[in-house]
Design a protein around this nucleic acid. Structure first.
Lengths: 111, 111
DNA sequence: CGTATCGCTACAGTAAATGTAGCATTGAGA
DNA sequence: TCTCAATGCTACATTTACTGTAGCGATACG
């Protein structure tokens, strides 16, 4: 699976299908991606603060994800650290209902 | 495939934090999970039809994800194949806005 | 200068996913 | 009954992704 530089979103599986949702699902379906967006919801965090928020995940993978998220236009690096862009906040807003769903889910399936 | 019954969600990172959203983000943030739910949106698929829909992903990992999704209560195996449960359809509904967002995002064109 | 943080990277080790093959079961057809 | 095809599912070697730890260069403050 050689990854050439495609015209669509670089390195994002499914981005060549012409179905943006596939590219988005692929990007979001990578480890820590959803979590990062979630942790940045209330404002920018420094790379190390983000790492703490993400349960001390490996800086290697956080850096990788942050780069992907920056290329996707969801995250930007400012003087205050990493923060969601306007687009990123829109994305976050789309899965805000997830939070309420998660609460219902946790009651449904025991625990 | 033995149904273990720990306090939280078995094998789901963050399920012990008491924040269901973390468990859900972890589950959804695994490769093919979002995609599987997406592909089942219009009705049940057999395991092999699902595999085709998922770009011929490895049956090993699809089986793993399907088991996780079944344990989470999002997917069930019926006579027609794998399908979303009522809960699974609710979950799908929460990220339906993602589709529209993805369209906007693709026009925004990152990087 | 010394120290402390920042963003970021190297690298060995481990976990996860892939790709291919195939098993056991079921049901339809000859 | 004996194929034949499709089902859900698994084995296993290879490849890729991620982890954990350490540390770099740059910047800032005393």
């Amino acid at each position: 699976m050689a990854k050439q530089a495609p015209a669509a979103k670089p390195g994002i599986r499914g981005s060549r299908t012409g179905r943006p949702i596939m590219a988005l699902l692929d990007l979001l379906g990578r480890r820590w991606t959803l979590r990062i967006i979630w942790e940045l919801r209330e404002g920018p965090l420094t790379s190390r603060a983000l790492r703490s928020a993400c349960d001390e995940a490996s800086p290697t993978i956080l850096q990788t994800r942050l780069t992907e998220l920056r290329e996707a236009g969801f995250v930007e690096l400012t003087d205050d650290g990493y923060g969601l862009t306007a687009l990123g906040r829109e994305l976050f807003a789309t899965f805000t209902p997830l939070n309420r769903f998660a609460e219902r889910w946790s009651k449904h399936a025991g625990s």
